[in-house]
């Protein structure tokens, strides 16, 4: 299902460039000298057994942690020292492994938080442009409703966010991430805790987004989900990258089978 894009992987521009990224926590090496590149327009997967360092690497890319060594470039810009809050304006948006929404706000308003990087910032600047701010407010509501409709939550826009079940919160996070109009969407275990139907819906959404030109980096546990979705996959084990390639290459890689897919492969 992804054959059409994996062919042109060689010609695409690099949007995310990870060079020798390492992260130490005291004596523990969570990520050890990992390098890979994500081409613009790709769905890139990061897999590995529990404790392989996927989440740490993901946090290095998203800026929640800063690397002990190495560099992370986004759009040819070094990012490893860029403050967390500057990244969404540059075109990175993420979801969280454990969903993080804002209680006390409605579903719609949670999505509207995603517009932040494109809005007037600060109290005084907002007061100076009072008419503009009030005018955009209505347009934002409309746009947020469209995003909710895209992920399939249009019926729940005005409910308190606390009313949504886990699967729908995931979708809400994706809608919120899309609100910032990112060029790179980072998904941290998006299928975790979803049932089969929800996982299929999620896969369809990601493919739709990718077809419209969005680059996606996702960390995931669910291998079957990844195999059908990703153009390229990197495999981590004990903090090191042990393989990278198309899903088919990964499935045949001896090291990967040994580290991770072995049991599953024999079943299949």
């Amino acid at each position: 299902m992804n054959a059409m894009v994996s062919e042109n992987s060689a010609v695409s521009d690099v949007i995310l460039d990870i060079q020798g990224a390492s992260k130490h926590f005291g004596g523990l090496v969570a990520v050890n000298d990992v390098s890979f590149q994500v081409g613009a327009g790709h769905v890139f997967g990061l897999i590995g057994p529990n404790g392989a360092g996927k989440s740490t690497l993901f946090n290095l890319v998203t800026g929640v942690l800063s690397p002990s060594a190495g560099e992370i470039g986004f759009d040819r810009r070094p990012m490893s020292r860029a403050p967390l809050h500057t990244r969404s304006a540059l075109g990175m948006a993420r979801t969280f492994q454990i969903v993080r929404v804002f209680p006390g706000l409605s579903v719609l308003e949670n999505v509207m938080m995603g517009f932040h990087p494109r809005l007037v910032d600060g109290i005084l600047p907002s007061l100076l442009r009072i008419a503009h701010v009030l005018r955009t407010e209505r347009a934002l509501r409309q746009r947020a409703r469209e995003l909710l409709a895209f992920v399939g939550l249009e019926g729940r826009a005005d409910e308190p966010v606390e009313h949504l079940p886990h699967g729908q919160l995931r979708l809400l996070e994706i809608a919120r991430a899309l609100a910032s109009e990112p060029r790179l969407l980072l998904l941290d275990e998006p299928a975790a805790g979803l049932n089969d139907g929800e996982t299929r819906h999620l896969g369809t959404l990601i493919q739709q987004l990718n077809r419209s030109g969005l680059t996606v980096l996702l960390v995931e546990h669910n291998i079957d989900f990844m195999m059908g979705l990703c153009h390229r996959i990197a495999v981590l084990d004990h903090g090191c990258k042990i393989a990278e390639g198309t899903p088919r290459e990964i499935q045949r890689d001896d090291k990967v089978i040994e580290a991770y897919l072995g049991r599953r492969a024999s079943h299949a």
Binding site: R87, A93, P117
Partner: peptide
Amino acid sequence: YSLRGDETAAESLGVN
């Protein structure tokens, strides 16, 4: 509201 909720999420959405 986002400040009282989840600072990491707010930062990731671009809120200083």
